[in-house]
């Protein structure tokens, strides 16, 4: 990757920082288990928009930060987000052409995959399993995808991130 070709890296970093902050901002008890996967959503957007800039490595690193912030096992979200980034990169040419609602469905699948991988690791550690309620954050993530998509797209265009 030649650095001179790209600019607007600060904007990408800023969106990730905001996503990380939203991951740990205190919520009332009933809403804690409903928190959408902000980092996953932002990662999927940038992987779709700029696949040659944001990829597997950045996804892994962001996952590691999520692990540190949420006190989960080191590598749990890192692995899941690296795989999510990988699949997004593999699919990006197709998904980019989809209408937004169809994109949202793809995002749902990716977010559920993130949660499933995470749950899988938890089960390995001997934690109890989850009900279907566990996947509600992914559903919420799907519903806010159009919002994330339009916001980040206008940011990308406004700041000419490439």
């Amino acid at each position: 990757m030649i650095l001179g070709r790209h600019h607007g890296g600060g904007v990408i970093a800023l969106t990730f920082v905001i996503a990380l902050l939203l991951t740990i901002v205190p919520l009332p008890d009933w809403a804690r288990t409903l928190r959408p996967d902000w980092v996953g959503l932002v990662l999927i957007y940038w992987c779709l928009a700029l696949p040659d800039r944001v990829g597997v490595g950045i996804g892994w690193f962001m996952g590691l930060l999520v692990d540190l912030l949420t006190g989960s096992l080191l590598g749990q979200h890192a692995m899941a987000l690296a795989i999510v980034a990988y699949l997004t990169l593999k699919l990006h040419l197709r998904v980019r052409l989809f209408p937004v609602w169809q994109q949202a469905l793809t995002v749902l699948v990716l977010l559920i995959l993130h949660q499933m991988l995470s749950l899988w690791v938890s089960r390995f550690m001997g934690r109890p399993g989850a009900t279907l309620f566990y996947y509600v954050p992914s559903l919420l993530g799907m519903f806010i995808w159009p919002l994330i998509y339009t916001t980040l797209r206008s940011l990308r265009r406004g700041f000419r991130v490439s």
Partner: peptide, 11 residues
């Protein structure tokens, strides 16, 4: 990276 994550998690 997945291999690295698994190693990290195990440790």
């Amino acid at each position: 990276l997945v291999a690295l994550s698994i190693a990290l998690m195990m440790m």
